[in-house]
Nucleic acid binder design. Structure first.
Lengths: 225, 225
DNA sequence: CGCGGCATTGACTCATTTCAAAGGTGGTGG
DNA sequence: CCACCACCTTTGAAATGAGTCAATGCCGCG
């Protein structure tokens, strides 16, 4: 069958939220996993190391980042319980990952075990694929945030994203990470992050109840920038 | 088994190139696919439409992009023959895709068919996963390029990436896309793209043999910015 | 020939980076 | 319990780089 594509004009629709699949749903993988217990700052895997394991965050929070040739750090992803990382088709990891807080626990499963179970359990294989796709969608969202023009709009949409992902159901408060991490996530300088937060506060979009606590007042304004 | 993560200092390693998996290796999916033949600018799928199909580029080139609330276009990915797109875990696509040149052909396979074949053919399932991972790695690379500080370094690393992906083995010449597309890929303005190219030319990093033909002279300088 | 899309260039404005310094905060050990 | 320290946060001032507006040039094509 052969179709002919038509020329549509673009319709502007807001992007939808998404839920990723987790490996945890399939218990069969559990016995094959090592459990890694981390302190804040502990390295879980290192850019350039041979890629042999998938990782699944069990508790705490993990940051995935790459170091550029010039030494700057680019945060690629922030991982929460249920999130999987380690996807690659190269022989080496293209990123590092480290724990963001004490008590972060991560499971580690070898590619071989995952591939082997994937062969016999297609539902598990489906879960792995969905985890990769969830990671992909987070990256797309990240790209869209980074592609915004002004710093306040970048920080604003980061806060929205953060409250959607990290917000413990509490609709108005989210517990962010350090300004340095936000800066490396958005690829702007720390000072600009601080000034952007001040700007959003001044315009009534947020309240800064503490250095690490932000209360979202005007969601629409944050999305708009 | 329980491990304890150690605190490494970051080692700076350049990220490696990667090869994605393709669906084409498995012929069994072929009969289930529609073939779409496109003119330049034809829409292949639309942001907000219900997500039902995977797409595989067979010839030509496809651009995948999202439109922001403010109307600006962010190019998410440029797809070449062998590349797969359409990955999502939402009910709707979060992006649009359109052909970049006349004669672009794309296969379209429904999620049901892919899932069904994935259940019975684990090697095929593996190929689908690898295609998602390849897409993920392209996005990471894209993120790293966009996260660079100056426009010349963004454009320079885009040219490197383009010559790696689009360069037909010819080591020095790459056939880029329009300045507008580069601008929307890097989230900078067209004028800035033009000036950045002028800058790189002036500093001896590239030669502009024609408006659409760039010759890479000094690869290291482009990577450095 | 003239049109539309693409590319370049200039001038101006303003946001962000950079450099510098000063306040805060939390944790550790005395 | 306090003092110190490392790290985080904010703020200021200066310089530069990018966005914007505007105009011109450049093809390819009908």
């Amino acid at each position: 069958m052969t179709l002919q594509a038509s020329s549509y004009s673009s319709i502007v629709e807001p992007r939808k939220r998404f839920d990723g699949g987790t490996l945890g749903q399939t218990r069969a993988i559990r016995p094959m996993a090592d459990t890694i217990i981390c302190h804040r700052g502990d390295c879980i895997c290192l850019q350039g190391d041979p890629a042999r394991w998938y990782y699944s965050v069990d508790s705490g929070m993990v940051v995935r980042y790459a170091i550029r040739p010039d030494g700057r750090r680019q945060i690629l992803d922030l991982l929460l319980p249920g999130d999987i990382f380690g996807f690659t088709v190269c022989s080496d990891y293209g990123f590092s990952a480290e724990a963001m807080m004490d008590g972060t626990t991560v499971w580690r499963v070898s590619f071989q075990h995952v591939d082997s179970l994937s062969r016999s359990d297609s539902q598990f294989a489906n879960g792995v694929r969905n985890a990769a796709v969830a990671s992909l969608l987070r990256l797309e969202e990240h790209l869209l945030v980074m592609g915004r023009v002004t710093a306040p709009s970048k920080v604003g949409s980061f806060l929205i994203e953060a409250s959607n992902r990290f917000g413990n159901q509490s609709p108005e408060v989210c517990l962010p990470i350090s300004r340095y991490d936000i800066a490396d996530y958005l690829a702007i300088s720390v000072e600009t992050v601080s000034r952007a937060l001040g700007n959003l506060k001044h315009r009534g979009g947020i309240e800064l109840t503490g250095p690490r606590e932000v209360k979202i007042i005007d969601r629409d304004m944050l999305e708009a920038g």
